[in-house]
Simulated assay, not measured.
Amino acid sequence: MKTVIITLALIMVTQLSAQLKTVDYSDGTQKLTGFSIAPAKKSAQSMGILILPAWMGIDDHSKEVAQKLATEGHYAFVADIYGADKKPADTKKAGELSGYYKSNYEEYQRRIKLALDKLVKSGANKDKIVVIGYCFGGTGALEATRGGLPVQAVVSFHGGLGKDEKRGNGAIKPKVLILHGADDPYVPQKDIEAFQKEMRDAKADWQMVYYANAVHAFTEKKAGNDNSKGAAYNEKADKRSWEHFMVLLDELNK
């Protein structure tokens, strides 16, 4: 019986994984490769979710999130920000690449918009789009709304909140949900205060949820469990942040 159950589970995982499709697109001469997945059964509640990966680029975690969203009945697309031939080999290169796009935010916004177009082309309703991001991708989720991209909401999972002070604060139309580790050492208090002022200045519909004993990368199982390193997995924060995300999707569908 145990063997049968394991076999069935493996079949289900294989079927789920098979739904994730490689999508080639481009930004000028730069080739990009993202991943798309559609729900097995779409409904009026189906949303289109754009996933912006962490600083190492498209990884297993971002693909797993896409698959999970499809089982929840949503379309999902994992964006390629760096380029098909530019995936960082190590954290040093990841820091250089993510730093470039944080500084050149208009290029980041353009890469996000290109991925959004592919999400809609995959079948998602253009009027029911949400951008979510992890770490560096969380910064990108905020850039989506700062850039005025046509989305209903943006969600940042342990993402960076800062931006160049010279940019000023503009209109923020989408709902904004920030899911933040209370002990995250990589997001300084000044960035938190500046972000909150930005939201207040814009009279935005925003939420910021703190998770106790959680540091950076609290959704990433491969980050380990040692909070002293500044980045570590936290099962409780991972589950709670997903639940808060689901609540937002339910709210958008009302």
Rank of each mutant, 00 (worst) to 15 (best):
V187N: 04
A194Q: 12
A194G: 02
A202D: 12
R200C: 00
Y186H: 13
A194F: 13
G181R: 09
V187E: 14
P188E: 06
Q189S: 11
H180Y: 15
K197F: 10
R200Q: 15
P174C: 05
I192Y: 12
Y186R: 05
Q189E: 15
L177I: 00
I178G: 06
R200V: 08
H180K: 15
A194L: 05
I192D: 01
P188M: 02
L179C: 12
Q196M: 11
H180L: 10
K175A: 15
D183A: 15
R200I: 05
A194Y: 12
E193Q: 13
D191H: 11
D184M: 05
H180N: 14
P185Q: 02
A194E: 06
Q189G: 04
A182H: 02
V176M: 09
D183M: 08
Q189I: 11
V187I: 15
A182Q: 14
K197V: 04
P185W: 01
D183Q: 14
D201G: 00
H180V: 05
D184E: 10
L177A: 04
I192C: 00
K197L: 08
Q196Y: 06
G170T: 07
G181W: 06
V176W: 13
K197W: 08
F195C: 01
E193C: 00
P185S: 02
D184Y: 10
I192W: 06
K190S: 15
D183G: 03
